[in-house]
């Protein structure tokens, strides 16, 4: 009784598992060297012949159903560019750039207006010259001065920064990239005594460039 399992075990131990067939052996070897995922020429050829068949377009009713689902969902073109819908996010996102532009433009116009008023002769009225905060070269103390005594003596503009503001879409659905250029403008004015006043002001320009999206 006690020998029966031993005999059975011996017989089983005498059995040898089948050797791996060549195909399977090749597959295992290929998986170790990473070549398993590379196709042979014959496989590529067959693959190409299958590619000439393509799945049909979605039916118009099913397509419409899916579009309804996708409606009001932002479309991520890439990490930086996200397309929004007119009625929601886009309406609030895109104008903000223009709002900033308008503010910058209004500020620039106001500043130029005040500068023009400042240098325009007004002989019958004494004007207090307000020295701007950014003065590069401190002139001699000026308290009261007639504007006519100062005249523009120089102008210089330098680019101080650029920034990519992203892509906007115009009303005809064409993408445009908005670039922001920041300039520093410096106006130098001189009076009859040779005293100098330099005024610096930043200036922002938005440039809209047609953009090609793949």
């Amino acid at each position: 009784m006690s020998k029966i399992p031993t005999i059975a075990e011996q017989k089983l131990a005498d059995l040898q598992p089948n050797k791996l067939d060549e195909d399977f052996m090749s597959r295992l070897l290929a998986s170790t060297d990473g070549s398993l995922t590379e196709l042979t020429d014959a496989e590529r050829q067959f693959e190409t012949s299958l590619c000439k068949f393509s799945p049909p377009k979605l039916s118009s009713s099913f397509d419409s159903t899916l579009i309804d689902i996708l409606n009001n969902t932002p479309f991520h073109v890439d990490e930086k560019i996200v397309l929004f819908h007119k009625s929601t996010s886009r309406a609030s996102a895109a104008p903000s750039k223009f709002r900033r532009f308008n503010i910058a433009a209004a500020a620039a116009v106001a500043l130029l207006g005040s500068l023009a008023a400042w240098i325009t002769p007004t002989p019958n009225k004494e004007t207090v010259v307000i020295v701007p905060e950014r003065i590069i070269q401190q002139p001699s103390p000026i308290t009261t001065q007639t504007p006519s005594s100062f005249a523009p003596a120089g102008f210089k503009r330098s680019l101080s920064g650029t920034r990519d503001e992203g892509v906007i879409w115009n009303p005809s659905n064409r993408p445009h990239r908005v670039m922001r250029f920041t300039y520093m403008e410096r106006v130098t004015m001189k009076n009859e005594k040779g005293e100098l006043i330099q005024v610096e002001q930043p200036r922002v320009e938005y440039v809209v460039i047609p953009e090609k999206l793949d």
Partner: peptide, 22 residues
């Protein structure tokens, strides 16, 4: 022509990838 950019982009995406996924 009145499709929003996102809807137009989704439609183009669906035209290209919808049949494959289906």
């Amino acid at each position: 022509t009145q499709l929003s950019p996102a809807t137009a982009a989704w439609r183009a995406w669906l035209d290209e990838h919808g049949p494959k996924l289906f």
